[in-house]
Design a protein around this nucleic acid. Structure first.
Lengths: 199, 199
DNA sequence: ATACATCTGTACCGATCGGTCCAGATATTG
DNA sequence: CAATATCTGGACCGATCGGTACAGATGTAT
């Protein structure tokens, strides 16, 4: 153990609180005062622990991904169900998160994607967000390619097209949730979308 | 004509410029300095002509709707084509706007919808945006109800579900464009979506 | 020509922005 | 204990925020 006083606040919990504010208000809409208020620490502690606003934001994005982003993918790999059902459950899992009453509405990545253009986000953060979206496309494309090889997907479907379609739908669901749509509303949209799926 | 000096700048053109900045940078990401710089006028003139930042934003939204928002709906009423083709053209018209190289990427209404939560947008502006989205749902629902009455739509389709689905898709396309998708990318997504449509 | 309304640029307002600095409190190690 | 490393709160920084006040230029109608 190193010599000296230990940090007296829970860094992970403070990061979570910061993530929630960014999620709710966006990057330019969140001030350091907002952050220190909700994190329950002062500016000096914030800078010592997290660097600056930009680095804190990047860490908040990372936290969001791990806590609220990657889990939904598991639904795609529950091979005891057919592909259509797995895709539906994947989207339903996302929709549940988007409308969770204990969390801000919508999706932090989607909100941040809208903020990329112009000079709203720091360059590094913008690149970070772009890379995350690209990674999602990559993962989904790979997934559907393998499903196609196993014969779960009609030959005339392009894996990449489906992946792009799904990410677009996710974005749309996120903004709809932001606009006040309930879980039931989103479920209806998902069922309509999946019902038409020709997998 | 009233007595006194006339306005020496083109108010409509200045409003257009303001709209473009809000579109690009969002409400909290746009400062009065950004606005006066691009509008080519000083603060006094801005306040005299448009009120304040919030009122200017509301007028910019109005301008955007008239100039870039309502035209797409016309595609739905070109009755010489079948319903599926009209819906496709409606979405393609939107996608063209979302990726127009002469305009900011994405959609001002969609961006603003993401900014509603939290205290990012003034209350009046937020209500305004919500009302616009509701109006879109209303228009689309009415449209599909009439198409259903004419027999262009299967009975088991809910007009409201399709309307909600389409708005969600529009949001998704807008964020995708913001994320750097090209017209070709969006066209692929639209074709995938429409191709599965069971109208 | 005169009166007047509106425009224009600038200086200025208090508040807040992100960020830094430092003195002192606090806790840990040896 | 003493030495040390880190935390804590508050004061402070220059810059910018949205917004206002005002003096003077400009142009219109009579």
């Amino acid at each position: 153990m190193t010599v000296g006083r230990n940090r007296s606040f829970d860094k992970d919990n403070a990061l979570k609180k910061a993530m929630l504010v960014f999620w709710e208000n966006g990057y330019p809409g969140t001030s350091l005062t907002d952050l220190t208020n909700v994190m329950g620490i002062n500016k000096s502690s914030l800078y010592a622990a997290f660097g600056n606003k930009e680095e804190l934001f990047n860490q908040a994005i990372e936290f969001y991904l791990n806590k609220h982003g990657v889990a939904h993918l598991a639904e795609l790999f529950k091979t005891e169900q057919n592909l259509k059902e797995r895709v539906r459950n994947y989207l339903l899992s996302i929709a549940n998160m988007l409308t969770n009453p204990d969390l801000p509405k919508g999706c932090l990545i989607c909100n941040s994607t809208s903020e990329i253009a112009g000079h709203c986000l720091p360059d590094n953060s913008a690149k970070n967000i772009n890379a995350i979206n690209q990674q999602t496309i990559f993962t989904l494309t790979n997934f559907f390619e393998k499903e196609q090889q196993v014969g779960n997907l009609l030959e005339d479907n392009s894996s990449n097209s489906i992946a792009n379609y799904l990410l677009t739908l996710q974005f749309g669901l996120a903004v709809s949730a932001r606009n006040g749509s309930s879980m039931e509303d989103l479920e209806e949209v998902i069922n309509f979308s999946i019902g038409q799926f020709n997998l």
